[in-house]
């Protein structure tokens, strides 16, 4: 639950090669962070969802890590829209979505819908 590292290939919702490459690049960028041990990325129509797990003892600096990630993404991909979350729930939902997307019968539309649902979960505060 906490230890198992899942460097899932940065799969993409829309099956275009360009998007996939972008997602993989983003994933590499985030993985370069010392404090982060697990990343999952999904590129959607508009937003790109980035879910990551922070090493337990580095969790005190979560706010700063999030800031740094946002800044890095902003600098490297000024035209992209990112949704960044360290929330465990978002992470498992992302992994699940990635798994389902491997199935060719899982339509793009459904994937996008699912992605939006995860993003709305993230935005929910209480």
């Amino acid at each position: 639950m906490i230890q198992s590292v899942n460097p899932e290939p940065g799969a993409v919702a829309l099956y275009e090669q360009k998007n996939k490459e972008l997602a993989e690049k983003v994933e590499k960028d985030i993985q370069s962070f010392d404090a982060i041990y697990d990343v999952a990325v999904i590129k959607g129509k508009e937003e790109t969802l980035v879910a990551y797990k922070v090493k337990h003892l580095k969790r005190f600096g979560m706010k700063k890590i999030e800031k740094d990630i946002n800044k890095l993404l902003e600098d490297h991909y000024p035209n992209e829209d990112f949704v960044v979350s360290s929330d465990y729930k978002i992470f498992i939902e992302t992994i699940e979505l990635l798994e389902r997307m491997k199935d060719p019968s899982f339509s793009e539309k459904k994937a996008e819908q699912q992605l939006q649902r995860v993003i709305s979960l993230k935005k929910e505060m209480t």
Binding site: D87, K89, I92, L121, E124
Partner: peptide, 14 residues
């Protein structure tokens, strides 16, 4: 974790 896994709660809302 139970609420995160089995319901639509995030770390924030659980």
């Amino acid at each position: 974790y139970f609420y995160i896994y089995f319901f639509d709660f995030t770390e924030q809302t659980a």
